[in-house]
Design a protein around this nucleic acid. Structure first.
Length: 266
DNA sequence: GTATGTTTACATTGCA
DNA sequence: TGCAATGTAAACATAC
């Protein structure tokens, strides 16, 4: 993606979608993550067109951040309190604009579990219903992983050091993921499905507890919280990087496994 | 109160 | 021409 310098564009509308502009701002930052306000500033600074009607386009931009799975939310560190989270790019959305068009992507990046889909499908009954199916799939995946090449997997996720899905195994990851309503396998009957991080608020009532079941956090050593997809878990499982345990919120425990820990909030 | 974040609905646009 | 991506508007929730 080109990196336009200051005053590259006049007051005409730049040939970039909001997604492209946001991605540009994030990629341009030293830490590859920015606060919402910093994204605003970057765009206004680079593109005079956006110095007007700020309410309109900023609303659209916020909509894009929430709506598109290619953007991931990273909470502020405890040391740096303030309003809003940091926004970063999903590690697997780097080729969004590989067709050379920054107005329109070839295909929208989608996480394996989109929040809207989860809302309809991930009830406790569905979770139970799909548990055995998921166990089978993960067993298949584990077996396949153990039968494939013993060479070290290529690391492609800079945040998690999780490996890319290798293509030399005897199955296609997409086949395993074809059923999007599957949930995470666990030895506990209270296992929860994988979804986007929405809230860390503690739940008290059973009703809100059910609602909260969709919300989990994947915590990394640097306290980064990112959206967690089923593919992340499968990838981690396939290379034995991560064991997955549901953890009760009130306990606030972490299971440390090779530098990664997983919190399930429900 | 305001900024931030989520969701829905609908319009517009570009691609196959 | 249909579908999917994108843009826009708005309502609402939540955090600071």
């Amino acid at each position: 993606m080109p990196r336009p310098g200051k005053s590259t564009y006049s007051s005409e509308k730049p040939p970039y979608s909001y997604i492209a502009l946001t991605a540009m701002a994030i990629q341009n930052s030293p830490d590859k993550m920015l606060l919402l306000n910093d994204i605003y500033k970057f765009i206004i600074d680079r593109f005079p067109y956006y110095r007007q009607n700020t309410q309109k386009w900023q609303n659209s931009l916020r909509h894009n951040l929430s709506f598109n799975d290619c953007f991931i939310k990273i909470p502020r560190k405890m040391k740096r309190p303030g309003k809003g989270n940091y926004w970063s790019l999903h590690p697997r959305c780097g080729d969004m604009f590989d067709n050379g068009s920054y107005l329109r992507r070839r295909k929208r990046f989608k996480g394996i579990f989109h929040y809207n889909k989860l809302k309809d499908e991930n009830t406790f009954s569905n979770v139970k219903k799909n548990l055995s199916k998921t166990r089978q799939k993960i067993t298949i995946l584990k077996n396949a992983a153990s039968n494939t090449s013993t060479s070290s997997p290529m690391i492609c996720d800079e945040h998690t050091s999780l490996p890319c899905t290798t293509k030399n195994s005897s199955f296609l990851i997409d086949d395993l993921l074809a059923d999007q309503s599957i949930s995470l396998s666990s030895s506990s009957p209270s296992s929860v499905p994988i979804g986007s991080v929405q809230s860390t608020k503690q739940q008290t009532s059973p009703t809100s507890s059910i609602k909260q079941e969709r919300f989990q956090q994947l915590l990394f050593p640097e306290n980064i919280v990112r959206k967690l997809t089923f593919l992340d878990i499968l990838t981690a499982h396939s290379h034995k990087h991560l064991n997955v345990y549901p953890i009760h919120l009130h306990q606030q425990q972490e299971h440390q496994t090779t530098g990664l820990s997983l919190n399930f909030l429900y």
